[in-house]
Design a protein around this nucleic acid. Sequence first.
DNA 1: AAGATAATCAACCGCCTTCAG
DNA 2: ACTGAAGGCGGTTGATTATCT
Length: 359
Amino acid sequence: MGRSPCCDQDKGVKKGPWMPEEDDKLTAYIDKNGYGNWRSLPKLAGLNRCGKSCRLRWMNYLRPDIRRGEFSDEEESTIVKLHALLGNKWSKIASHLPGRTDNEIKNYWNTHMRKKLLQMGIDPTTHEPRTNDLSSILDVSQILAAATSNGQFNSNIFNNNTALQDLLKLQLIHKMLQIITPKAIPNINGFNASSLNPKPEPVLNSFNTNSVNPKPEPAAGELNAIDPQVFINQSTNEDFMPSFEDNWDGFENNQLPGLVTVSQEDLNSAKPGTSTATEVTDQTRAGMILGYYGDQIPSSGSVSVTPETSDMNHPGTTQHSSGSDVLEDWERFLDDETSDSCWKSFLDLTSPTSSPSPW
DNA sequence: AAGATAATCAACCGCCTTCAG
DNA sequence: ACTGAAGGCGGTTGATTATCT
């Protein structure tokens, strides 16, 4: 026969918030005896609680190695990247953040980081640009036109302008995808400055630009006359972002690294309107992440450079083979602090040399 | 100042996997 | 090999606190 029931004495066990005395009892018991059998622990510790409840309380709040307080930029960065890779695998994400619990990370994600990504125009579930609101993403050429008045690039507009930096990154990613699959990724022609205002979002899937942006859009002809100060003034994201100038040299000299492709199947599954959160598999997600965030393909495992299948228009394009190894490779890549490149510092939002960091 | 609304987060619920019997 | 409890996990709830009107 199997074991006896865990909480068959559940009738009458206390629920709800823990009292300090209960915490003391649980801590004292575990300090003295350790834990191993949560089922029998409450009785032995003199607690009228379910074993599960004791475990949760200990794991999430009483453990001595728990780290409380604000999440650092570095922690945010790790969470974003791991969430992009793993999805809502909070315990796995927590294992990369010493002292943080899955519950805390989950709460933090749902209350803070989801909003942040939405404000940046990124779908927090898929980590893709929200292509059903592409009008909110600027065309990089227009930004550059605004920044190069008098024929000279004015890098000052990028300083302390985190929203603009976000948009530049998004735009670059978008252009990459356009190059890879021009049919799947529509052009971005419209621009609405008011959409830069972080606002509470309506239901994501029924997002309607007009519903959030009551102001009239500028005429098409006005696009090239955008005053950069508009963006600066409208930016309310005052935290994070490495300096754009740190990454500008290579970009300015057209020294972008080779693009990273994903399979057509991956891209098809990621097309707007054809994929849902549950339909995006880990492998697809890994492929998209490699395309979005990475230029450095892990040297081992299933990922390899395959020139014969690469886009000849974009030397250096690499292709990954699908497989669960990709996830492991990518995890190793995330842990590899020695990797460094234009893309890493540009798209990797946690450049350790830049502080503060967005994530 | 008071009520309404939004944000936060501790804790519960129920499902899934592992493993003891 | 099978059964079923224990442990683990992710989704959700609801109480509390903060902010807005």
